[in-house]
Amino acid sequence: MDPKGAYGKLVRDRIPEIIREHGAEPVTYTADAEEYRNRLRDKLVEEVAEFLEADDSTAPEELADVLEVVHALASVLGVDVGQLEKIRENKASERGGFAERIVWTGNR
């Protein structure tokens, strides 16, 4: 693989092992910190797109993939899942959540 990251994509940690179990030999490398962060951002876009295309039966699985990437990005930023949840709770307390389905159309 191109160590500058022009090719390939970030995959889950067990994917090379799963590929080997199916009789192929994966070609991989470990991204440096900067590439990893960039590839996680790309992966988030990919997973959100998959979620948006999913039907109701597959949407929960796709949403779990989004959450996995969000957790990895939080870790890169030095924030653990508990801290991330606290930040979410604080924002919800200050600004609310989305449960009331309010759509803003502008001001008068």
Rank of each mutant, 00 (worst) to 15 (best):
S57V: 13
Q83E: 05
V70Q: 03
R12M: 06
A33H: 08
G8R: 12
S75E: 14
L52I: 11
N38D: 05
P3W: 09
V66F: 01
T28V: 14
E25L: 10
V27T: 09
G97A: 08
L73V: 13
G106R: 14
R95K: 08
L44C: 09
S75Q: 11
R39T: 04
D56L: 05
G97I: 05
L40I: 07
H71R: 07
K86A: 14
A59F: 03
E21G: 07
A54G: 10
A64R: 08
D13P: 00
A33Y: 04
G8Y: 01
S93H: 13
I15E: 11
R41C: 07
K86C: 02
E94M: 00
I15C: 08
Q83R: 05
N38V: 12
S93A: 13
D42N: 08
A64H: 06
L63I: 06
G5H: 14
A74L: 08
N90T: 09
K4M: 12
M1Y: 12
V69Q: 08
E21D: 12
R37P: 14
L10I: 13
I18Q: 10
E61R: 02
R101T: 05
G8L: 07
A24E: 15
A54T: 03
L77P: 00
V81A: 14
D2R: 00
T58I: 00
K4H: 14
D80P: 07
Y7H: 15
E17I: 04
R14S: 12
G82Y: 01
R14N: 02
D80L: 15
V103R: 06
E94N: 05
E61K: 12
H71M: 06
A64F: 15
E46D: 00
F98N: 13
E61W: 02
L73N: 00
R12N: 10
D56Y: 00
E85Y: 00
Y7N: 12
V81C: 11
R95F: 10
A72P: 00
M1T: 07
S75F: 01
D80C: 02
A64W: 15
R88Q: 10
W104D: 01
R101I: 03
T28R: 07
G106A: 11
E46P: 03
E17N: 08
K4L: 10
L10N: 02
R12I: 12
P16A: 01
G78S: 09
K86I: 07
R14H: 02
H71N: 00
N107I: 07
A33K: 15
A64T: 04
V66N: 06
E34H: 11
V79N: 03
V48F: 00
A6H: 07
D2Q: 14
A59S: 05
D13I: 07
E25V: 13
P26T: 10
Y7S: 08
E61I: 08
W104N: 06
